[in-house]
Nucleic acid binder design. Sequence first.
DNA 1: TCCCGGATAAAGTCATACGATAGAAACGGG
DNA 2: CCCGTTTCTATCGTATGACTTTATCCGGGA
Lengths: 253, 253
Amino acid sequence: MQLHVNARATRLNPDRLFGQVAHRLAVAIITGASPTGALLPNEDDLRDEISVSRTAYREAVKFLSGKGLVEARPKSGTRVAPREAWNLLDPYVLAWHFEADPNEKFIRDLFELRLFVEPSAARLAAQRRSDADLKRIEAAFRGMVENPPYAAPTVNADLAFHEAIFAATRNPPLQCLAPAVSATIQWSLFLKAPDDRFFFTASLIDHERVLDAIVQRDGDLAAARMSGLVIDSLNSTLGLLAARVQAEAAKSA
Amino acid sequence: MQLHVNARATRLNPDRLFGQVAHRLAVAIITGASPTGALLPNEDDLRDEISVSRTAYREAVKFLSGKGLVEARPKSGTRVAPREAWNLLDPYVLAWHFEADPNEKFIRDLFELRLFVEPSAARLAAQRRSDADLKRIEAAFRGMVENPPYAAPTVNADLAFHEAIFAATRNPPLQCLAPAVSATIQWSLFLKAPDDRFFFTASLIDHERVLDAIVQRDGDLAAARMSGLVIDSLNSTLGLLAARVQAEAAKSA
DNA sequence: TCCCGGATAAAGTCATACGATAGAAACGGG
DNA sequence: CCCGTTTCTATCGTATGACTTTATCCGGGA
């Protein structure tokens, strides 16, 4: 599974060897191909499997250990950490999930988190936004309107819209949740049939209503409308997931 | 500044050399001693400052780059990344902040985030908790009651209480915010005069009321009471911060 | 049976070398 | 004198082999 759109720099530079190794290991872990507790290929044995030096391999492991994906201990080896230890909100970890099949529970959980956070973020944005913030949000919205539905620039504008709202909250830790929101949006658009105009139009209206509330500096209204947006997006995404599951069941039957 | 309590394993093993280097660099970055865009000590020059091989140094940099603290590019050097790129919700990044002076804005921002998230988490916990979840939450509460105020076991029990609530939500991405909540608690207790019994008793009552709502499986009540708990904690912490600032101003005058 | 200590395997650290690349400086043409 | 091109060089990236440290395992002795 490959995502065609990837707005932020949440992807390791593929030119770098260590990045390729990290990506490979991470995807194996997240998809479950390497289950919890599994030993990673021994640092020496690994040279046989993929031709890469210990240096590059070790740097990749260090990178992953910082995200809680692996644990290395002398003598016992380097093992896949239990999922509870993973930093699921890390931008890289979120991005690596796109390489795996869609996990309905995970996507629901992300939407649930989003539903808790993003309306509050919209409230703060409405209250605290500067004119520059507003310009940025408006520009993103215009990008959604003026480009063809589901095209790459449109998706990027959608992501930029939500990111701009987070930026307007002036709360850096809160802003760190923007990648999680982006992930739900990308999942939603990834699952969608690219000719589904109905949802796109509805989504556009949802966005416009949020923007309007932020223009008015009406925090409560912005929060309420953002809730509506997220719920609409969740419902349509869950519908798509169900359809996908059904289609796959029919195909294998 | 040194925090005496550190419940989770959010601290790099200090026995490992690479961990010491990473810690040192991270603290320098977070305190602002190494400002944005500053070049990190050259990989070769660094050997003069602290006697460490390139290997250990590079692994430390890789570790930090995964958290957005630094950016390494061939030739141009390894530079401190802009703060917007930092993953402020990463457990390590949160922990490293304790090595710097308290940053009021940052602590306020964390509390703000907590106020958005934790009441919702409490609601879910009340709705979804298993008996085992409840046992865990109750055990943590007992740990707060039965140990002396502000002692290490008490603090750990406090952290465990909130972590258990997150665990009961059955939402792994949401659980990843537990370290951020823990950080606010640790800041609050760090700033507090260790003989302040008044706040401790009030906090205990707040916790008991939340626990009671979870026992009753009353989601709305749990959310409301958790809001109260967080707000009480925020207010007392801000008071302590103000007192601290005042004391320092008086001392320097 | 339990405890202690050595063997051992794996990660951790070091030193060195070479390759690749982007920026800087030197150079040359207009 | 200015600007584009070339060359140079500093710095990161990768590779390799040796040595150190650490934790587990296992066997011997009390």
